[in-house]
Design a binder for these strands. Structure first.
Lengths: 240, 240
DNA sequence: GTCGATTGATTGTATATACAATCATAGACA
DNA sequence: TGTCTATGATTGTATATACAATCAATCGAC
């Protein structure tokens, strides 16, 4: 390795961090790779060990590295992402669990905007919307009932999709980049329709997630997602 | 101020952090207060300046302190929050609706750490925790059952609070600046205990929010919040 | 009274040095 | 072959020292 990192405008410890991040970013140091020890970096970079230590310690605190006393310093695997406020890709989640995902398309059609949805689309007056109802299954067991109303101006081909092969999520994420999002979560008891579609007893507790997304200044989607309480939870983590 | 902080089981810089967090938690050092300078803390605690500096630097990175070169070190104000992922102040929400808030304190005690909570506090081994159970009412109607386990090292006076006058939320926001947060949300059917405390029929759908917060590298609180599905929902909005 | 320079206080960074703690490996011995 | 101990490598912490950079207050000149 070469001598002192360049860019004297920032402190040395920051330069060491940048040096390491560049090696990670370039793929030179992939996940789980052991990097040179502190003393090796002292030789390589001609910087004091305490400065190296600070850089490595901060990258460790930031989740970029993991260190084992007596052993060495390793590139940490990328963090699993998942946040309540993000769009939920139930198919992806199910597959990530090594389970078989299946989508039962109950309905997919273009309809006149129902009067009770007018308030939701006030900002984006429409005559018609796409309406889809899909049950997502994990290993055959119903997990989520998804009902969506989609703005055809943004996704003209929504109605042509085969949602047994792809999912609305996958399609919408590409077609309607989310610039704003609002949601409400509560718990409901499954009524007869929901209980039937999700194959649970009437009255069983379900998580109801209502969500509206915008792309630019247009309402893109209005979604009602119902999860079987016993089979699903939403989680997230937020930190420094 | 007295001499070296106690508890030699942890490194000095951690002890200094705990020492400072205890002063914040006790209300001795409120928001925006300037704390003693590094050199003053060197005198007060008889520890090297580099060790003090490390403690203060880490608390700054964690959002607990803010530092101004040439001026001093200050207690950072609690961050403005207003998001699903943030702490929910049910009392504040109820009052904001112009409704009367009341807290029924079912229990508030200091207990040995229950074995089933050990995993939650793995990162912060404790012998004891504070345990509180409170029912929050809006205009007399039960809305939320709140159960909390609180780290006494961070909030030594938690057990002395009158939570009919203030709320755990108000107290904890001050005492345990949240530097990391994780949660799980799901829907449950109220069991007999919950149904009794929330005055709802057994089996009624409730939103279950389980949350764990960290202050610095210590687990601060482990919370179980149960909301009556029919009476409460959690919402949020996110934009660019 | 205003402006600029100086001073003192404080935080910020870097280095050298020392010792502690942990881990993995190699070697010795039964 | 299995166990135990010693060794070397590595990270972890603590201290002392030095200089840099920034801020606020004070002082002096105009």
């Amino acid at each position: 390795m070469s001598s002192k990192p360049a860019n004297p405008a920032s402190p040395l410890y920051e330069q060491v961090k940048a040096h390491i991040l560049a090696r990670i970013g370039s793929g030179l140091w992939p996940s789980d790779r052991r990097i040179p020890s502190e003393n090796e970096l002292v030789e390589d970079l001609g910087i004091s060990r305490m400065t190296i230590n600070r850089a490595l310690r901060e990258l460790t605190a930031e989740g970029v590295l993991k260190r084992v006393q007596g052993v060495g310093t390793f590139i940490a695997p990328p963090k699993a992402r998942g946040d309540l406020l993000e769009l939920n890709d139930i198919a992806g989640e199910i597959r990530a669990r090594g389970q078989d995902h299946r989508a039962d398309v109950i309905l997919l059609e273009r309809i006149p905007l129902p009067p009770d949805l007018r308030p939701a689309f006030t900002a984006t007056p429409l005559e018609e919307v796409f309406h889809s109802v899909i049950v997502h299954r994990e290993g055959g067991t119903a997990m989520q009932l998804e009902e969506r109303y989609v703005n055809p101006a943004l996704v003209p081909d929504y109605g042509d999709q085969d949602f047994t092969k792809t999912t609305p999520y996958e399609h919408l994420v590409r077609a309607t980049p989310v610039t704003e999002l609002e949601h409400v979560i509560t718990a409901i008891a499954a009524d007869d329709r929901v209980a039937h579609l999700l194959e649970i007893p009437p009255g069983a507790p379900c998580l109801l997630l209502e969500r509206r997304t915008w792309t630019g200044d247009q309402v893109a989607t209005v979604n009602t997602l119902i999860y079987v309480g016993e089979r699903y939870s939403l989680g997230g983590r937020r930190g420094r």
